[in-house]
Design a protein around this nucleic acid. Structure first.
Length: 797
DNA sequence: GCAGCCCTATTACCT
DNA sequence: ACAGGTAATAGGGCTGCG
């Protein structure tokens, strides 16, 4: 029997005449694209007997019910665990995975049945979990080639004769063909609507350096563009198809446009259009469709998540070297034959950026996919909680733990971490001591887990219990809990990868992959506490989250006391960090003492040459040895302040912390205000960006960004939850929300400059300078220097 | 009618 | 649609004031 080795790119299943087949889309070692079909996998779910009911009797009743449920193929009683407690369950095998929910409904009516479990696990996920098949991993399968009757776009179709076997030791990636694309939709005014507005440009770039552009002949017909694009995809036959905002926008848009033109957007390897899949992802059978926007959250420094900003941040293409056209300008560039080439250039650059950003993300995406077990095209779209959960589910299967149902629960807040009151002012030589992965360490050290929790009234086991401070939740010391096991597995894996990294050439592809792997592991380990406190978690038990933070508070308070007892001055602290005057010897003793008494690691994370603390918590700035400023929480790092405020604050911090001159800082602010009043500051620096967090009608109060959004909507712009609204404050009378205008509708002469002076620049500067007794009046340039225009005057009245 | 106060809604940050 | 703790602004209601 021939053995085939392949890397798993995508998975789906098909059901014909109630017979399911798993389709595994892969790339073989020698670069062939293959489809492995596996017909031999049963679907199943569990039935839990009501308390006091005999599972054998339940199994018999289900057997009897098979007359009416002909697709049930078998019933067996099995031993499993649920939240660590042994349970005997009835495992019911069923032929057609698409009929499971129907069958569950019938079985729930059988006497003595309490509930069903794992009927909510998709067949393709079930297949991977039970057979330890790993997306983006190499596998070996015994299989025979069969004829490609389904017309799949692959080199070979194989019928599996064995279950594929995962080969964890192979970490290299096959050479994948990646295609990036970027679209231009044309609408004369407002957001383009797929029902009426055509796609006029599609630009394509590939990781092999090919570039293509399809341009509509007229604004009326886009069938040629779409047809050419489909042909292009089929010819290049990408493994990964990637774009920006494609889940929400392009895929559906193109599918609708295709239909309008009597076409089908047949871009998959099987005969189908893109279709909506889990987590709002648009799936393309046989390929991995990746929307780079899904990875934007990995870069919190990028406040406005546009392709150009992300490409700029990652060094793919600097903003300054780019052709940039904003959405509201597209129509005029398309309409004007003279300007159209600029639009085409812009679109092509977008496609290049997409490929460039993809190349910087792919390693992480691949590692995350193989770590948590979600297919490459799904893992980016899945929220953090679901990524953690799929990792847990794989582990649960291995230890015979049943997967609990996702329940609707009311929000139940609990106490979190401690934040110290900072000592305001400038401090020299400050060390920041951090606990190493505090919450995961706590969960492991005190065995905190849903399955080790001892509810009040239950006796303590002979092996003893850990009791959380303040709240007194108890957790049995033995055996190891679910979370504890998962976390130590993760941490051991990460330590091993980091050990391997030391022996590898940092420039090799292998190094990049392993580095991405250790990052993926870190992300999942660090998110586990948050998952445990999430009411949507399958493995949620409130005391678990509550106990973790309680121990966290106890530990940091103990550490602070020890530091003080050692004579270390504690300047500030937040959750798992303490800021002390840098005294390496004492810090060393403290670190030792904490390890001995608390069993946790703490070490200096960074040293500030000088640091400035405001009166407020979570807002400070440190000067690092290399001269850079570490600005935390202040306006300068916030996305919802105008650049004028952020620029000023950064400059003030620099002058204060490096130059140590309050006078120079004050002078700088005054000059800046003068420049602004003379309109020497770019218009763009006056835009304030705020996110819409709900539908416009849902807002209870009038707010500037909401009113600006309504103006945009009135002009035909579609706004979604999560969109950022860029607005400016214009002069006139009334509330701010009456004077906020979308920046695309305003010009410099509309601007209320004094708003920016009083409500942006002055507060941002005073946040720092008030520590040195500087007052608002000190920052305002002398009245004579202010050229009052008639307009300003009228605006004030 | 409005200044001053306080509370709430809203957003974005920190760890 | 991973957690709680926190700062900050703008809006809005209320009080008191010739």
């Amino acid at each position: 029997m021939p053995v085939h080795r392949f890397w798993l790119l995508d998975i789906n299943y098909e059901v014909r005449n109630h017979q399911p087949e798993i389709w595994l889309w892969g790339v073989s070692e020698d670069g062939e694209r293959i489809l492995v079909i596996d017909r031999g996998f049963p679907t199943y779910f569990y039935v839990l007997p009501a308390s006091g009911e005999d599972p054998e009797r339940i199994a018999e009743r289900i057997e009897l019910a098979r007359v009416n449920l002909p697709l049930i193929t078998g019933v067996e009683v099995v031993d499993r665990r649920l939240f660590g407690k042994p349970v005997r369950a009835v495992k019911v095998y069923c032929l057609d995975p698409d009929l499971v929910s129907e069958y569950v409904k019938s079985i729930l009516k059988i006497r003595g049945v309490d509930s069903c479990l794992e009927d909510d696990i998709r067949y393709s996920m079930r297949y991977m979990i039970d057979n330890n098949i790993v997306p983006c991993g190499w596998h070996e399968v015994e299989a025979d080639e069969i004829s490609n009757t389904i017309g799949a776009q692959v080199d070979r179709v194989l019928l599996a004769k064995s279950k594929p076997k995962y080969l964890p030791e192979i970490i290299k990636m096959p050479n994948l063909r990646i295609m990036g694309f970027s679209t231009v939709f044309y609408s004369r005014k407002g957001s383009p609507k797929p029902e009426i507005n055509p796609v006029v440009v599609i630009s394509v770039a590939t990781n092999t350096g090919e570039e293509k552009q399809f341009i509509a002949n007229s604004s009326e017909s886009d069938s040629d563009v779409i047809e050419a694009f489909i042909k292009c995809v089929r010819e290049f036959d990408p493994d990964i198809i990637v774009g920006f905002e494609t889940n929400r926008r392009d895929m559906q848009y193109l599918a609708v446009r295709a239909r309008k033109n009597g076409l089908t957007l047949r871009v998959g390897r099987a005969d189908a259009e893109p279709h909506t899949s889990a987590y709002g992802h648009m799936s393309i059978t046989g390929r991995a469709h990746i929307d780079l926007l899904d990875y934007a959250d990995e870069f919190p420094e990028v406040k406005i998540k546009t392709l150009e900003n992300i490409a700029d941040y990652l060094g793919v293409m600097k903003i300054g070297e780019r052709t940039l056209i904003e959405d509201f300008e597209i129509a005029q560039y398309w309409e004007d034959e003279g300007k159209r080439p600029i639009l085409l250039k812009f679109s092509m650059e977008n496609a290049r950026c997409i490929i460039g950003v993809m190349e910087r993300i792919i390693d992480f995406a691949v590692q995350l996919s193989s770590l948590v077990g979600l297919p490459l095209d799904h893992v980016g779209t899945a929220a953090v909680g679901f990524r953690v959960e799929w990792f847990l589910i794989r582990h649960a299967y291995q230890i015979g733990e049943l997967i609990p149902k996702r329940l609707e629960r009311p929000y139940a807040p609990y106490a979190g971490a401690i934040v110290l009151e900072p000592k305001p002012g400038v401090h020299e030589n400050v060390a920041v001591l951090d606990f190493k992965s505090m919450y995961p360490s706590i969960m492991m050290a005190f065995n905190i887990s849903p399955d080790t929790y001892i509810p009040p009234g239950e006796p303590e086991p002979p092996s003893g219990a850990y009791v959380a401070p303040e709240i007194n939740h108890r957790f049995r010391k033995e055996p190891h809990g679910f979370y504890s096991e998962v976390l130590s597995k993760l941490i051991k894996a990460r330590d091993k990868v980091r050990e391997d990294l030391k022996r590898i050439d940092p420039k090799s592809p292998e190094y990049r992959l392993l580095d991405a792997r250790q990052k993926a592991i870190k992300v999942i380990a660090n998110a586990t506490y948050g998952y445990a406190g999430w009411i949507g978690a399958r493995w949620y038990i409130k005391p678990v989250a509550e106990a973790v933070t309680a121990w966290g508070r106890y530990i940091i308070m103990s550490a602070i006391k020890m530091a003080r007892d050692l004579g270390l001055e504690v300047i500030y602290g937040d959750t798992d960090s303490i800021f002390v005057r840098n005294d390496p010897e004492k810090i060393e003793s403290l670190s030792k003492m904490i390890w001995e008494k608390l069993g946790l690691e703490i070490k200096p994370d960074k040293i500030y040459v000088r640091a400035l603390f405001t009166e407020a918590k979570k807002r400070y700035c440190g000067l690092m040895p290399d001269g850079r400023l570490d600005m935390v929480g202040l306006e300068v790092v916030r996305g919802d302040w105008a650049n004028v405020a952020k620029n000023i604050q950064e400059k003030v911090l620099e002058i204060i912390l490096k130059g140590q001159s309050v006078k120079k800082a004050v002078e700088y602010v005054r000059n800046y205000i003068t420049d602004l009043r003379e309109r020497k500051i770019p218009f763009k620096d006056l835009i304030i960006w705020k996110t819409l967090t709900k539908d416009l009608e849902e807002y209870e109060v009038k707010a500037p960004h909401v009113e600006a959004a309504k103006l945009l909507q009135k002009e035909g712009w579609l706004l979604n939850i999560g969109d950022k609204v860029g607005f400016v404050i214009t002069s006139g009378s009334g509330k701010l929300y009456e004077r906020a205008k979308p920046y695309i509708f305003a010009s410099y002469s509309d601007i209320d400059i004094e708003y920016y002076v009083t409500n942006q620049i002055i507060p941002a500067a005073l946040r720092i300078l008030s520590l040195f007794n500087v007052k608002e009046n000190d920052l305002l340039p002398p009245k004579s220097a202010k050229p009052q225009t008639l307009f300003d005057f009228l605006g004030k009245k």
